[in-house]
Simulated scan of single mutants.
Amino acid sequence: MSKKLEGNGRWESSRMMLPQHKEALIARQNPEPEVKQVQKPTEEEHEMILNSILLPMMLTMIERNGKEFEVSTNMLRRYYIAATQILMNRIHAEMVKNKNELKARKIRVFEDIRPDEDLHYKYLCRGYEYPFSVMRDVVKSRISIKLGEYVKTLLHQMRE
């Protein structure tokens, strides 16, 4: 018997291959990268991204005002400082909650520094990078609205 016919030599000597088998072999040797479906952020996720930008700014503003009350001679300064601490605790708790939710949804936010009046950020959402810009006037108004909501809930809880 010849060496080609020993063991699996009989099959090795065959030169015939079906086209389907050839395509399957080539596909296995050179796998094509899978095309990912781009899942853009939802409106709720955009709001969470905006909150991840606004909440630290609010916390800094309230902390600065609290320090101003500490050195003031106002009769009600003790109450202002207590209210400031309560607001700071609430904002911090919401920041942590928002950060954890963004992490669970695989979204990360980065500051992008540009020399103009707007605030520029980039965020990675499920592997894709998007730009995000906010005008300073919008930031001021949104912070004012959110701060009003915090104070409103604080006063509502004090009445109960």
Rank of each mutant, 00 (worst) to 15 (best):
G66C: 03
H46A: 02
E111H: 09
I81F: 01
T42P: 04
R78S: 06
E32N: 08
R90V: 00
Q157T: 14
K106E: 15
Q157D: 15
K22L: 09
M48Y: 07
E6Y: 12
E6D: 12
L76H: 00
T60N: 07
R77M: 02
R28G: 09
P19A: 07
E94H: 08
M61Y: 04
Q39M: 09
V71F: 04
R114V: 08
Q85P: 00
P31A: 02
E44T: 06
K22F: 10
G66F: 01
I145A: 13
I113N: 12
E63I: 00
Y130S: 04
M135L: 08
L154E: 14
E160R: 15
D116P: 02
L119W: 14
V96F: 00
S141C: 06
N89W: 01
V38P: 02
Q39D: 15
P56Y: 01
A83V: 03
N89F: 02
N100G: 10
M58L: 06
T153H: 13
A82M: 02
R10N: 14
E34V: 04
E63N: 06
G7E: 11
E129T: 10
M57C: 01
Y79Q: 05
L76T: 00
R114L: 11
E160V: 13
P19Q: 08
H120E: 11
K97S: 08
P131A: 02
M135V: 09
M16A: 13
W11D: 12
E149C: 07
G7T: 12
Y130Q: 05
E70K: 00
P31G: 06
C125Q: 09
Q85M: 01
L87N: 03
A27H: 07
D118R: 10
R15V: 11
H92G: 06
Y80M: 00
E45L: 03
A83N: 10
M158Q: 15
G148L: 12
L54W: 03
R15L: 11
G66L: 01
L50Q: 12
K122C: 03
R77K: 00
L54S: 04
M88R: 11
L155F: 15
G127Y: 09
K97F: 04
D116K: 05
L55S: 01
L119A: 14
N51Y: 02
E149L: 12
L50I: 05
S144L: 12
N100K: 10
E45M: 04
K106P: 08
L147M: 14
K36M: 04
C125V: 08
E45K: 03
E34S: 06
I143M: 15
I62R: 06
Y121E: 11
K103Q: 12
S13A: 13
I62L: 04
T73L: 02
M58Y: 01
Y80I: 00
V139M: 14
N100F: 05
N51L: 06
A93F: 02
N89L: 04
Y130E: 12
H120K: 05
R142S: 14
